[in-house]
Computed example of a mutant assay.
Amino acid sequence: MSYARKEYADFQKLAPDAYEATLALGGFAAKAGRDKELLELVKLRASQINGCAFCVQHHILLAEKLGVSADKLNLLVVWREVSQFSARERAALAWTEALTVRSDGVSDQIYEEVRAEFSDSELTYLTSAIASVNAWNVFGVAYRWTPPGRQARPSAAAS
């Protein structure tokens, strides 16, 4: 069992400017009126890939609060294999995986799929949300932040 090296709250105290910048990047898409449920699925999927326990739990809690179905949350890890996800969600999840894993870059096929579902502005905001959650994941994994409990949720603005 590994223990936290630092906690989420420590990040706020130790580097408030970096915390605020990361928080701001993550909030732009939601502030621009983008689909909050979709953004939580994207953030949750990136967090699963990156192995950030804190962010996985955080985004599950936020998604539940927004009314994302338990089926979608439970099956997100195998989204390609099930029918619960719309074409728009599938495009966003493929984009998320391409930007999170990045070993193969972003194929023209994935780019065309996501462009068919999102306007230029929407795609830019979606990309900013993915960049933000990946940054949060770096901190969460590096410091092994303790996942939040159902009673002790971090602010909805985080990541």
Rank of each mutant, 00 (worst) to 15 (best):
A135I: 13
F85V: 05
V141H: 10
Y111M: 12
T22P: 00
F11P: 00
Y8F: 15
E81S: 12
V68T: 03
V101C: 06
K13A: 13
A135L: 14
F85G: 07
L61C: 04
F139H: 06
R144C: 06
R45W: 04
Y143Q: 11
Q48Y: 00
K6Y: 11
S83A: 15
A135F: 14
V78Q: 08
I60C: 01
A158V: 13
K6G: 01
S107N: 05
L44Q: 01
V56W: 02
R34C: 14
Y125E: 13
Q12C: 08
C52W: 02
S2I: 13
H58D: 01
H59C: 03
A18G: 10
S86W: 04
V56G: 00
S121E: 13
S121W: 07
R150P: 01
P148N: 10
V138Y: 06
K72M: 06
R102N: 08
G33P: 01
E113F: 07
L38T: 03
S119A: 07
Y111N: 11
R144K: 14
R90T: 12
R5N: 07
K43V: 01
L76V: 09
F28M: 14
W95A: 13
E112T: 13
S119T: 15
K36L: 08
L39T: 01
A18C: 07
L61T: 04
I49L: 12
T124L: 15
Y8Q: 00
N74W: 02
A87V: 12
D17S: 11
A46W: 01
L66Y: 06
Y3Q: 14
N74D: 07
W136K: 03
G67C: 08
L23K: 08
S132C: 05
R144Q: 10
A30K: 07
A53G: 02
A142R: 03
E37I: 03
R150L: 11
H58L: 11
W95S: 13
L41S: 00
F11G: 00
R115E: 14
S132D: 07
G33Q: 08
C55V: 03
D71L: 12
L39A: 00
N134Q: 04
V42L: 10
V114Y: 00
L14H: 09
G105P: 01
N74K: 12
L14G: 00
T127R: 03
A94I: 06
Q109N: 09
G51P: 04
A70V: 11
D120L: 13
I60M: 09
F28H: 10
V106F: 04
V78E: 10
A87E: 15
S132A: 15
G26L: 07
A135R: 04
E81I: 05
A92V: 07
P16H: 08
Q151V: 10
P147M: 09
Q151F: 15
I49A: 02
W95Y: 05
K72T: 00
V133A: 08
R88H: 11
D17K: 14
E89V: 04
V42R: 02
E37F: 03
V56R: 05
A30G: 06
A116Y: 06
S83W: 11
A94G: 02
D108P: 05
P16K: 09
D120G: 08
G27R: 03
S69L: 10
R153Y: 03
V141R: 14
S107R: 02
A142S: 13
P154S: 12
E97G: 02
L126Y: 07
